[in-house]
Simulated scan of single mutants.
Amino acid sequence: MQIKISDVADLPSRFGDFNVQAFKQGQKEHLVICAKELAEVPIVRVHSECLTGDAIGSLKCDCRDQLEYGLQMADETGGMVIYLRQEGRNIGLLNKINAYALQDKGLNTIEANHQLGFAADERTYEVVTFILHHYNIKKIKLLTNNPDKVNSISGVEIVERIPIIMKPNKHNEGYLDVKRDGMGHLL
């Protein structure tokens, strides 16, 4: 795996004062946002990009809430957020919006992805192991509901899975049900 790594820079934010570093894997540029002093066993949130949720505040998902909670936890506990550029479960923004249009017609998120020729979830996590090794992290507490993340991160001991349960709203209740019932998320 060939990865280019940026320098470390300061990032003061409304969630705390962090260090940031970018990791370029092919055409994807991932971002690590971490506390200035990492805990010996840091809480780590692996977050996949969601432009509509993270930046625009879409109520169709719980992505922004999870990202903000992850950043708060990183600041409070000496942890990190690994922000993966895997928009729309790694089908890209154009296909994600096409999936949204199919959901508007009654399909759920899994059915919409299948209709477009994709698996329910196209994300991969091998770069996470690379990043954790880069920071010399041997053990983590993983902030996730997704068993695929737990099972896909290798070479690092996950000493605890910490649930990240966000309050549903009328626009994302069905989406969260599908994540739980159709994708096995631990909600």
Rank of each mutant, 00 (worst) to 15 (best):
L59M: 13
D177G: 14
D104T: 01
L107F: 09
Y175D: 11
V20E: 07
V8H: 02
G174R: 13
Y175T: 02
Q72I: 03
D75K: 07
L116S: 09
V81M: 04
C50D: 13
K36L: 11
L31M: 12
A112D: 03
L59N: 09
K141T: 06
A55T: 05
P42A: 07
I3W: 10
R161N: 11
N19D: 12
C34D: 00
R14C: 07
H133D: 12
E29L: 15
V81I: 09
C34S: 07
H134W: 05
I162E: 13
M73H: 07
S58R: 08
Y135E: 03
C61K: 12
K149N: 11
C61G: 08
L142N: 04
N146L: 11
V41M: 15
N146F: 11
I140R: 06
K60C: 05
L102H: 05
K170G: 05
K96V: 01
N98M: 04
N90Q: 06
P147S: 13
N172F: 05
H134A: 06
E29I: 14
Q86N: 02
D181W: 11
G88A: 13
G92S: 10
Q21D: 00
Y135G: 02
I165R: 06
Q2M: 15
P12N: 13
V156I: 15
D62T: 01
L71E: 03
F118L: 15
G78R: 08
S154I: 08
F23K: 02
N146P: 05
H47M: 04
L107W: 03
I82T: 05
V178Q: 08
E68F: 01
K60S: 14
I56Q: 02
D121G: 06
V46G: 03
G184H: 08
L102T: 01
A22W: 00
D54I: 10
L11W: 13
V81W: 05
R85L: 05
T52E: 06
V81C: 07
K24H: 15
D148H: 14
V8P: 02
